[in-house]
């Protein structure tokens, strides 16, 4: 095991009994090492073993085979949870408690007390912007406020590993932006904290995560940086041109490839080399280039392609 790894899964397999003689392998021989300070997105279709993996990391489930280490300690030990901060999907709290009482309760469960706990709570209320509602009962909190309180409780012990399960689910667009900013702030303030993150919204994963782990049918399909996943695909560009002569249009882009936009005609170009070629040609003519935008290939497409490629290579000839 790499000593700097925050999470280390070695040949982890989880088999569930689904009947008297039937079994189902939810996670199959999973090897994954996440270094400290990394923001990793765990992706995969439903039933790919994401939740089971997260539950095993949290120690809720024991792996049938293999070993999971959290900061060097086995996930089966209760003491390993002292390193973890967990934000579940759709968190809910005892509604008769106030926000502050919730944090005191969870803080005491973590063994924090006295002025240390008090200061920590104040700091966290400020971070998640809930100071105004600290003495309000949780039953009056909105979905976004509850989510932010749940983030605050996950940060109480300054964990080395933060596990966020679908942190944006059920939030309105503004709430999602707030949550995204909050996670970025947490990462900026605690650069050594590893954030392990599962989300169905790939746009959030693309913005927040450095790397992604893609699970498929309980197996790790790919664990790579987002940059390499996106840049390995061919970059596409949108170029808007004004006063383009029909003959040049035909020569450069072919027939009926343009889209009319308010400022001119828009064309799609594939690859940086082709873009340079088109640009050099256009500069020689009176045509005006209004704008060029890089079409960032969606992670969704890239992941779909990655999973397809892997599935194909696995298939017998």
């Amino acid at each position: 095991m790499n000593s700097s790894a925050c999470i280390s899964l070695t040949e982890v397999t989880k088999v569930f009994k689904t009947g008297l003689l039937k079994t189902k392998t939810a996670v199959d021989n999973l090897n994954l090492e996440v270094p400290a300070g990394e923001v990793v997105g765990l992706l995969g279709p439903n039933g790919s073993g994401k939740s089971t993996t997260m539950k095993m990391i949290l120690g809720f489930l024991k792996p049938t085979l293999g070993e999971i280490l959290i900061c060097g300690e086995s996930s089966n030990n209760i003491s390993a949870r002292a390193y973890i901060g967990y934000l579940p999907e759709n968190p809910r709290f005892q509604k008769f408690l106030t926000g502050k009482e919730i944090l005191i309760y969870y803080g005491k469960l973590l063994g924090l007390q006295g002025t240390h706990l008090k200061n920590r709570i104040e700091l966290l209320f400020e971070l998640v912007n809930l100071k105004h509602a600290a003495f309000e009962r949780v039953q009056g909190y909105s979905k976004g406020m509850t989510q932010r309180l749940a983030i605050a409780q996950s940060l109480l012990n300054q964990p080395a590993l933060l596990i966020f399960d679908e942190p944006m689910s059920g939030l309105d667009p503004l709430g999602r932006i707030e949550m995204r900013n909050l996670i970025s702030t947490i990462h900026a303030e605690n650069p050594k904290t590893t954030i392990f993150f599962s989300s169905h919204v790939l746009e959030d994963v693309e913005t927040l995560c450095k790397s992604v782990a893609l699970l498929q049918k309980g197996k790790l399909k790919t664990y790579t940086s987002i940059e390499s996943l996106i840049s390995s695909d061919q970059q596409k560009y949108d170029i808007v041109i004004k006063n383009l002569s029909p003959s040049l249009e035909l020569e450069l882009f072919g027939k009926n490839t343009s889209k009319s936009v308010a400022t001119g005609k828009s064309f799609s170009i594939e690859g940086p080399e082709r873009l340079s070629l088109v640009m050099s040609q256009l500069l020689k003519t009176p045509a005006q280039i209004i704008g060029i935008t890089g079409q960032r290939r969606q992670l969704e497409e890239a992941l779909f392609k990655a999973s397809e490629v892997f599935t194909k290579t696995e298939m017998p000839a």
Binding site: L58, G59, F60, I78, S79, R81, A82, I84, G85, Y86, P88, E89, N90, P91, R92, F93, Q94, Y106, L109, L110, G111, A150, Q153, I163
Partner: peptide, 14 residues
């Protein structure tokens, strides 16, 4: 039902 048990058991609580 609330799911708060997962938050509680994610702390070092047996």
């Amino acid at each position: 039902q609330m799911g708060s048990i997962s938050m509680l058991l994610s702390k070092p609580v047996s």
